[in-house]
Design a protein around this nucleic acid. Structure first.
Lengths: 250, 250
DNA sequence: CGCCAGTTTGAAATAGATCAAGCCCTGTGG
DNA sequence: CCACAGGGCTTGATCTATTTCAAACTGGCG
């Protein structure tokens, strides 16, 4: 399994980037846009279930998600898996490889995913020539950190029901910010993924989700979760949301 | 409680920084050193138990830890607390305030702590004038992310015994890298802190630590934990360690 | 048709939480 | 010098959230 198609020579010009017009992302200056356009080396398209990056590998690339859903995870030697966070359009992945030499986690696609490919080697040029973009990269890393903090709070101190409510509300909020839902508020995820994110067994996860379903907050469909009441999920979790405001991306 | 002394006008010149000579940190160029020296605005000294930053506050400052131990945490409304990570010399704190406007977590001192104070406003100058330092800040953020990933794996998927072993090994490794131990390998921490880091109750934490004590891997002393066998703790946790190599700091 | 991944359910086992006390040490105030 | 209060640690007993085990159901798909 987990085969990824070769990197396309085809590339969407950054000037026509489908993400840029979204209200969630900050504007680029002409200058920045031009640099990023050169920085981008190609596009990668993978199918649902493919592995995008593997723990331990030395990848020469950085990626920005153009479309689709995926997740980052780590495993223990005996196979226990922990999902660390989800990746969605605008997210930068592979930065960790820059500091540690090799990836410390794996990344897998939940849906079909397409990614912009950058060369890690040229990152220093970005820092030298475009301080504003350099700052954006720091911003993106700090944001990921903030989200991990919240996940940690969730796994460490929330009950199973609160955790599940938090996770679904979180994914829903992220999708909403990215204008990902056309009518059907659908998250392409399996109960096993939810279990591995929340640190619960799949059986208990199933029973917990059933409680949320009975309260008409979510509905489970083939291949994912439909959100019926995001507000109430946030209330159960005691979670404030992601905050408004525009964010950068590369 | 939690009173912090006013920011000292007194400042250790960066040229005489006690951290710089440590083998764990990367060298600075003369240029970088000069800039950082100007960037630094003063020093802050707080006692054990003091709050250094509070969730929700708008701080105008960034800090680098010069000496001492502390921790970052978040709380739920009903008082449940989750410790997110520990801060030690060389760590940068307050960066999150830059991206979210306000702090998303609090920081408290475990021992007496002294900090270098920087003005957040002048961060952009650093990005404009010193790309190498800008990159270092990203590096530091990405490193924190990596550590949070590991914590998440721990809380989500390791057993209580494994978690405790991981945490103590982790703190021990960090202290060792920083040459913090002179003979006595002592971590200034309370069992309540360990419980709030591992997502366990204090009673169960106590019983778990007792098992580690009985195996002669640690010894509990007044006010903290003495590490007797870091190797074996890592083995129990199935944890590889932090990796060698120098790291930057500001 | 039969297989497979994902979901669902019930029953038994257990890790960890909660409850309740007691202990030790240090600091404080009479 | 003693009393006592408080924080941190320890321990045993009971309770419960969650895991594990086992089995069956569903809908696609070759």
């Amino acid at each position: 399994m987990a085969t990824s198609k070769p990197i396309h020579s085809f590339k969407t010009p950054c000037e026509q980037c489908p993400l840029r017009p979204l209200p969630h992302f900050r504007e680029f200056s002409r200058d920045e846009l031009e640099f990023v356009s050169h920085f981008k080396r190609g596009e990668l398209a993978v199918d649902a279930g493919s592995t995008i990056l593997v723990e331990g590998a030395h990848s020469a690339h950085l990626f920005t998600v153009l479309a689709g859903w995926g997740f980052r995870y780590k495993m223990l030697e005996d196979g226990r898996r922990q999902i660390l966070n989800y990746i969605m359009p605008g997210d930068l992945i592979g930065l960790q490889g820059t500091i540690a030499g090799e990836m410390q986690h794996s990344v897998e696609a939940l849906s079909s995913v397409s990614l912009c490919v950058f060369e890690r080697d040229r990152l220093m040029t970005l820092y030298n020539k475009h301080p504003s973009l350099a700052f954006d990269i720091t911003w993106i890393a700090a944001r990921e950190e903030r989200i991990l903090d919240e996940h940690l709070l969730s796994i460490g101190r929330r009950t199973a029901l609160e955790r599940a409510a938090y996770l679904i509300a979180f994914l829903f909020e992220r999708g909403r910010q990215l204008s990902l839902f056309n009518g059907r508020k659908f998250i392409p995820i399996t109960q096993q993924h939810i279990a591995d994110t929340l640190g619960l067994s799949i059986v208990h996860t199933n029973k917990t989700l059933k409680k949320l379903s009975e309260r008409r907050l979510i509905r489970w469909q083939e291949g994912g979760c439909e959100v019926l009441n995001g507000e109430e999920l946030m209330a159960i979790a005691g979670w404030e949301g992601l905050g408004e405001g525009k964010r950068p991306f590369i």
